[in-house]
């Protein structure tokens, strides 16, 4: 696409305990971010007895921030220190490359923050898998994701697109959806999309959509392949 606005931007996503989101945004403002969007999210604990007692949903904040590419690594490292992402159960931060951006006029980046360009590209083999499923299928979908050995995921409540053919009191109806975000290695990401699309019969209309985005950098994964969140 020959769009003139090839954006030197990255999208940084941070998943932390509920309530910390605002702190993450204001901290990041001093490190090159222009602001952020905070979404109520839920972590899913994998312990069996928690699941049996239905105590497995833990409130989280998912923070999305658009930053200039040259600030991306610095911000991730700063966040990692600030939030102690190396420790278990603190959170995770990752960046996704953004191909185009429109409407950045409203973003005012603090010009005083100078960011050195990153030293070298980290070879990260992680993918962020986004599974948009019907709210009803969410629990089963998380189970399926776990069955591949991936740590499950963080989910957010969302609404599916309007069904114009079905009006409720003269309004198009929206269906309740869940977006499950899972960070996994490339091979595992492929496996997840395969398993989930078979399970959800994803090619039938209304059953959902799954897509994977290569992760540029990630902080908060303790060991190879193991997520701490």
């Amino acid at each position: 696409m020959d769009t003139p606005e090839i954006a030197p931007f990255s999208l940084i996503a941070v998943i932390v305990q509920r309530g910390i989101g605002s702190k993450v945004v204001s901290f990041s403002k001093d490190h090159g971010s222009s602001g952020g969007t905070i979404i109520h999210a839920y972590g899913t604990a994998s312990r069996r007895w928690l699941k049996a007692l239905r105590l497995d949903n833990i409130s989280r904040d998912l923070v999305l921030m658009l930053v200039r590419d040259n600030c991306e690594e610095k911000l991730l490292d700063a966040l990692s220190d600030y939030l102690h992402l190396g420790d278990s159960n603190t959170g995770i931060a990752f960046s996704l490359p953004v191909s185009h951006v429109l409407g950045t006029k409203k973003l005012s980046f603090d010009t005083e923050v100078t960011c050195a360009p990153p030293d070298a590209d980290e070879a990260v083999d992680y993918y962020a898998v986004f599974s948009i499923v019907r709210d009803l299928d969410r629990e089963d979908a998380v189970e399926k994701i776990r069955s591949t050995g991936a740590p499950g995921g963080t989910y957010i409540d969302a609404f599916g697109s309007a069904d114009m053919s079905r009006l409720i009191f003269n309004m198009p109806s929206f269906s309740e959806k869940s977006i499950i975000v899972t960070i996994a290695s490339h091979a595992k990401a492929r496996e997840i999309t395969e398993v989930l699309s078979r399970f959800l019969k994803i090619d039938e209309p209304g059953n959902g959509i799954i897509f994977a985005v290569p992760v540029h950098r990630v902080r908060g994964i303790a060991k190879e392949g193991e997520l701490v969140i």
Binding site: L66, V98, S99, V129, S197, I202, I209, F211, A212
Partner: peptide
């Protein structure tokens, strides 16, 4: 903004 996707189902 737009993100480039790898796998889409």
């Amino acid at each position: 903004m737009t993100l480039e996707l790898d796998e889409v189902k």
